[in-house]
Nucleic acid binder design. Structure first.
Lengths: 158, 158
DNA sequence: AGAATTATCTAACCATGTAAACTACCTTGG
DNA sequence: CCAAGGTAGTTTACATGGTTAGATAATTCT
């Protein structure tokens, strides 16, 4: 190796300082996003609701894998959504252990309502960026997605 | 098409779907980063340790503002770092209410150790990206930083 | 049938955010 | 100069949402 502070293979193009900034920024941004609370539902619940909406009917296990968390975590959140009448859980007719989870009508309504209000929040902050900055974000989006793709061995969850 | 689903001012260039993906991705990436635990210290403690290192000597209030959390949260984390002998707290000679917080020698050592090990973790995952993807990330980094800059009114913390 | 596996839930724990109330100190106006 | 009010920080009590370990029930395998 010929570089002054090589951190690893591809890191010829990324400095130690940039690495640190990346960590800190992504960590903090995540916290800000998870904590800003448009409405009644917390981030975890909203994320789960959307996940169900995208994959319904689905199972607790699939949701856990999709969210990148452990099943007990999903179970609890699911119970909350159940109590709120936003989702329904039915026994799988084929496999008696599993359950089929899907949105209720109220859940569908809540989903679109949230979609709108969440967008409002994010949009407001994206509004502070210039058009160029926004484009940079969009281009980087797939990379960010890849970075946190559970299929890429990142999560110890599975 | 010009813009089928405009969400707000600058959003001519960002679709509703991209907005959602951005939210979800940043939220999840944040969680992954905050939970991966190279070592003994949690994300919050590491972040605080670095913050102190950057600004020392500093005060609890400044740290809270900097971290974008409330003072009680800082107090507790600070106590942990105190117990671990990584930081020290001295009464401010001028203002008896405030305290001056700074790293101990052990704190400084821990800081550089962490810097290295954290980098290793992130680097490993960045290694899965191509050189081009990495460059996209780097270019987008300042934008992400701006997005979560507390000076930009995002945090309700102040 | 009996054993192993699988899907899920329960229970207990931990970390870390919050708001509200309290303490101690500083500052200032009568 | 001292009482009133503001400010820094802590304590307390609570909520959320992650974890692991262990229980339960249904399925699958031999």
């Amino acid at each position: 190796m010929s570089n002054p502070t090589p951190v690893s293979r591809t890191s010829e193009s990324i400095s130690r300082e940039e690495l640190t900034r990346l960590r800190m920024t992504l960590g903090r941004l995540g916290r800000v996003l998870r904590q800003q609370n448009d409405d009644g539902l917390s981030y975890a619940l909203i994320s789960l609701l959307f996940s169900i909406g995208r994959n319904q009917p689905t199972t607790a296990g699939e949701l856990a894998a999709g969210e990148g968390v452990t099943p007990p975590s999903v179970t609890r959140s699911l119970n909350r959504l159940l109590e709120l009448g936003l989702v329904k859980r039915e026994r799988d007719p084929v496999d008696g252990r599993a359950s089929r989870i899907s949105l209720t009508a109220a859940g569908v309504a809540e989903r679109s309502r949230l979609l709108r209000s969440r967008e409002v929040w994010l949009s407001e902050h994206l509004d502070r960026l210039t058009r160029e900055e926004l484009d940079l974000l969009l281009v980087a989006l797939p990379v960010l997605e890849r970075l946190c793709d559970p299929e890429l061995d990142i999560t110890p969850g599975d």
